[in-house]
């Protein structure tokens, strides 16, 4: 996620960002198809406002914010769907099966998704999207120290929950 000159075309931006966004959002939501939709949505937003976006210091930060916003909404929707099912007293096992995540890591990303929002976002942005801390901080709108704290907490909590899973 490097600085983009104003001459950067949207197409080039898209080709760079789409695969990365999809990877990140797949970890975020656990579903590849949903991730692709969310990434497309975010980039469509960027396309429509490209004249503004391209002037930003880092258009990638903007599009990630949009993507995470949309992911949050998607996450809320999923939770509400699950709640609706419970209210109707049906089996809780009806949640859609996630796809697109390497089987080896399914449990790990499940646990990441269960982290508090900031910790989850920091981990996904840093470890999946491969963003340096400064860029993670820019996306999350906080300082680098706070990102470190979120990452540290997230890892610690992951260690606890994953250890519990193995018992």
């Amino acid at each position: 996620m490097t600085d983009r000159p104003e001459t950067r075309t949207f197409d080039a931006f898209f080709v760079d960002e789409f695969p990365r966004l999809v990877s990140m959002l797949t970890a975020w939501c656990g579903d590849r198809a949903t991730a692709e939709d969310l990434a497309q949505d975010a980039l469509l937003k960027a396309q429509r406002r490209w004249a503004e976006i391209v002037r930003l210091d880092n258009p990638g930060t903007w599009v990630r914010r949009v993507a995470l916003n949309r992911s949050s909404n998607e996450g809320r929707r999923r939770r509400r769907e699950r709640a609706a099912i419970r209210r109707l007293r049906t089996a809780a096992s009806s949640a859609p099966q996630f796809s697109g995540v390497p089987v080896l890591d399914t449990q790990l990303w499940d646990r990441v998704r269960a982290l508090p929002a900031r910790q989850r976002d920091a981990i996904v942005l840093h470890y999946v999207d491969d963003l340096p801390l400064a860029d993670v901080a820019a996306v999350l709108g906080c300082n680098v120290g706070t990102v470190k704290t979120h990452l540290q907490r997230g890892r610690r909590r992951l260690a606890t929950t994953l250890e519990g899973d193995q018992r």
């Binding site: 789409f18 695969p19 990365r20 999809v22 990877s23 797949t26 970890a27 692709e36 697109g100 995540v101 390497p102 080896l104 890591d105 790990l108 990303w109 990441v112 981990i123 470890y127 999946v128 491969d130 890892r155 610690r156 992951l158 260690a159 994953l162």
Partner: peptide, 17 residues
């Protein structure tokens, strides 16, 4: 956990579109 996240993140990137 850090190492596991790094490896898992790399695997996810490898499956990018």
């Amino acid at each position: 956990i850090d190492e596991r996240l790094r490896a898992a993140g790399m695997r996810l990137r490898d499956t990018a579109p």
